[in-house]
Design a protein around this nucleic acid. Structure first.
Length: 592
DNA sequence: CGAGTAACTTAGTAATTTTTCA
DNA sequence: TGAAAAATTACTAAGTTACTCG
């Protein structure tokens, strides 16, 4: 598309044109869309939706499902029973064995009890939820055993819900909503060692809900007998619905799907900012290397932190309120206890050993050789400090981001992650793609490039429970295929011998077809082996997060075009929807 | 500044659906 | 054709960043 420029200022126009072209172009396309270059901060002009879908009401257990306290049957009040079922449903989970979880749960559960229940039920260990738990297991089993028709009915009901509540209209477009269902009540499951795990997540009522839509839209009615907390018309924000959650007191939102115009444009902008960083990253690197020598402690700390963020793709690391969340850190919040300095380690000089829990309590462990000056600075920062003291005591994310803003408009710490991820993919693809490879081998190269990024960003996953088994299955498949290949080769050989003797057309044909068979099997074997390699290398690494959030999709699209790889091999349906803008726009010569 | 809040992006895991293969 | 495995989607927690207010 010739009119597509990659400059940021034309993003909005481009996207709107694209959206229109691919949807239903009206007669006055241009003027209509050019109007939509909103003034500062305005996100939309028209917004209409149906409001959220609430969690289904609690259905009390059948009479024959019992709860036992201290060995004796006890009938619970509806409210207490509901909370008890939350615990019962998690009985098989490790959570329910954790002291903090049990303590928090019991405290919140007691709040829901009648005074009578409260005086009887004083010890969680005397509570027997096993019958309830069995009942739920049977229920889920029964759900699996449902007939085709019953399943179909449920599916249709879900589709109806989606059709009715899953879409909104924002400025002439019907857009998919990401999370139109309100989170149901349950027990809070934090990640890692969360001090609030097990607390009761209360049921959200219409009275908790703030609706955001335009004044001239049809305002969604609250459920009968209820009222919204508030209806507002704020077009400086993108959310449709919000409520305050009771565990951390934070606000939750209903927003649009990543395929929507508003999210797509923002995503595009993000990558354009990262590309602007590409242009000045050398200058910035020289600058922070100079700053390592600064007389000012604050400047030195800032420069070393920025070096880590750039080199290791660490997150900014905001301060967190102690006791409110799991103890995790990012760059600016690193403590002395999180790094070890090795003047020499395994033949390398000036090695820094990192060991800390990052976002989602995922462990970051890395031994990194650094420049001497960085090393000396770190020694300085750690002087006279306790393990639990901040490494960068003169620095926080606000100071760092203010500095970055001065270096480049729109630059913040997270832009470095985006930049380094995308540039790494591009460079790895160049390095790893072998033009002579077939498609599966090229895709392996792509996955390896993707993997390099995931490793850089420390995107981990728990190894799948069935990993070992599935590897073994694959290996036996490979072995079987090898045997099949040996057989086919033998057959080919004898056919050749036969043809030599007979010298007729028919036996020649047989040779040809046997040759083809061998080739086919060789290819199949190769595909299996590639698959095995790929899977093994992926054991603990999650590719999805970087693909979805850090890699400029135009790099991948261009790579597919260049090597004739169908885009479906790289992006599934959801991903193609999210990256529709990139798929239409990037040509094979696209450079990040 | 420093604390607090709002808005939005990024994240791993659980649940569900689709595909594969005996 | 149905069970197992793989792929996808749903879910919601946990980050970052900008901004306000005293």
């Amino acid at each position: 598309m010739a009119y597509l420029s990659t400059s940021e200022s034309s993003c909005i126009i481009y996207y709107n044109c694209l959206a229109l072209l691919s949807r239903h172009p009206g007669p006055d396309v241009r003027s209509q869309w050019e109007e939509e270059r909103y003034p500062e901060g305005i996100k939309w002009k028209f917004l209409e939706h149906k409001g959220p879908v609430f969690a289904p009401p609690y259905e009390p257990l059948p009479e024959n499902v019992k709860f036992y306290y201290d060995g004796k049957v006890m009938k619970l009040s509806t409210k207490a029973e509901e909370v008890a079922t939350f615990f019962a449903k998690m009985l098989d989970h490790e959570y329910t064995t954790k002291e903090i979880f049990r303590k928090n749960f019991f405290k919140d559960w007691r709040k829901e009890m009648t005074s009578e229940e409260k005086s009887t039920i004083t010890n969680l260990s005397k509570c027997d939820f096993t019958h309830m738990s069995q009942y739920f297991k049977a229920q889920s089993e029964a759900r699996k055993q449902m007939s085709k028709e019953e399943k179909q009915k449920i599916k249709e009901e879900n589709e109806r819900l989606l059709k009715e509540y899953g879409y909104c209209v924002m400025d002439n477009h019907k857009e998919r909503i990401a999370n139109f269902k309100i989170e149901p009540p349950g027990l809070f499951r934090g990640r890692g060692n969360h001090p609030k795990m097990g607390m009761l997540k209360r049921r959200i009522m219409p009275e908790d809900i703030i609706i955001n839509c335009s004044k001239d839209s049809k305002i969604p009615p609250p459920p009968p007998g209820h009222k919204w907390k508030e209806v507002r018309h704020d077009n400086k924000v993108t959310w449709l619905v919000s409520w305050t959650e009771n565990i951390q007191g934070s606000i939750k939102y209903i927003m649009l799907n990543p395929s929507s115009r508003i999210k797509g444009e923002k995503d595009w902008q993000k990558y354009e900012t990262a590309r602007r960083l590409k242009k000045c990253v050398d200058k910035i690197r020289n600058q922070y290397r100079e700053d390592w020598k600064s007389k000012e402690m604050k400047v030195r700390q800032r420069a070393v932190a920025l070096y880590f963020i750039d080199k290791l793709a660490l997150r900014a690391g905001n301060e967190k309120e102690e006791g409110e969340t799991a103890d995790t850190v990012g760059c600016c919040s690193l403590r002395v206890e999180h790094i070890k300095l090795h003047p020499e380690l395994d033949g390398q000089e000036y090695v820094v050993e990192f060991d800390f829990l990052g976002k989602d309590s995922i462990r970051y462990y890395n031994k990194v050789p650094v420049e001497k000056r960085v090393f000396k600075n770190l020694q300085l920062f750690m002087e006279n400090k306790q393990p639990e003291d901040d490494l960068f005591d003169r620095l926080n994310t606000s100071i760092l981001n203010k500095h970055l803003q001065d270096l480049m408009e729109g630059l913040t710490a997270k832009v470095f992650r985006t930049y380094n991820a995308s540039i790494t993919l591009q460079q790895q693809l160049k390095e790893l793609t072998n033009p002579d490879d077939n498609i599966p081998a090229k895709i392996l190269s792509y996955n390896r490039a993707n993997r390099a990024v995931a490793i850089l960003c420390n995107h981990q996953r728990a190894p799948p429970k069935t990993f070992e088994k599935s590897m073994m299955n694959l290996q036996s498949k490979i072995d079987a295929k090898k045997e099949q290949l040996a057989d086919a080769r033998r057959e080919l050989k004898s056919a050749k011998a036969d043809a030599k003797v007979r010298r007729d057309e028919k036996s020649k044909k047989t040779v040809e077809s046997k040759k083809k068979a061998v080739q086919r099997i060789e290819e199949q074997l190769m595909k299996l082996e590639v698959q095995a390699t790929d899977r093994e290398e992926n054991k603990q690494i999650a590719l999805g997060t970087s693909k979805l959030n850090y890699l400029d999709p135009r790099i991948s699209v261009a790579w597919c075009k260049k090597w004739g790889i169908p885009i479906e091999k790289i992006y599934n349906k959801t991903q193609r929807e999210k990256f529709a803008w990139a798929i239409d726009m990037a040509e094979e010569d696209y450079e990040f």
